[in-house]
Amino acid sequence: MELFQYPYMQRALIGALVIGLAAPALGIYLVQRRLALIGDGVGHVALTGVGAGLLLNRSPVLVAVVVATLGAVAIELVRARGRTSGDLALALLFYGGIAGGVMLVGLSDATSANLNAYLFGSLTTISPQDLTTIVVLGAAILVTMLALRPALFAVCHDEEYARVAGLPVRALNLLLAVGTAVTVTIAMRAVGVLLISALMVVPVATAQQVTRGFRATMTAAMALGLFAAGSGVWVAANADTAPGASVVLLAIASFLAVAVVAAAWRALRRRRAEAGTPAPEPHEVVLR
């Protein structure tokens, strides 16, 4: 516990907690849209931003925010245009992003340790300025995702309906794309480019096994994200493991634990239901 007396560990913990809270708050909209892995794609693009930042001697995180935002907006425009060539366009963007990142980092004076810090996260090297960036941007994401929940829910749930309701569908989609880029970039410091999607998606997947509504899922996912981030940093500090990987593994462990408990509970309830009332009628219409 005494490790947390050191400022760098305090920064690591605060940074992880902010990201643990903000990432699922945004990720839930991506999951609802069935775009769960988009965060990964944006993360690849962000790596090019990191490379450019290191090469130009500018803050890698801030350059990555700009580059990832451009990438996310490009992905959103491709998505909105139609799906036929979208897949390939996305693939080009993803691999172009990571190759560009590796190349630019190689051109700069940075070492492979620098690259690793962004690929797999490096919570313990967060500087006070980094922490300020993470807290400010994380809070902005959190406030936006919570305040605009009804509108974002409507757009992600049924985009056509949202259009007929006169919602600014394109603006909301772009907001989500920009939010994804910002979240990815700040999460990059914590869990790394390769593990970013985990924090956006896994807590949501865990929560929705037991929740009935969207709001409940969002609340539970944020609580789970907070728990995984906090306990992950704690485990990392005490067992001397990589913080990013510890956070993600704990998130996945909670998923498995909840899955087992939920399955057992359902089985129990089914057995009780079989003894009591008859099963409900099957659906008249099977959804596609």
Binding site: I28, V31, Q32, R33, R34, A36, F153, C156, H157, D158, E159, E160, Y161, V204, Q208, T211, R212, G213, F214, R215, T217, L287, R288
Partner: peptide, 14 residues
């Protein structure tokens, strides 16, 4: 039909 969106549960009220 209900839109294709809905990887996340939503209540009728929502």
């Amino acid at each position: 039909r209900l839109g294709a969106g809905g990887g996340v549960p939503a209540t009728a009220r929502e």
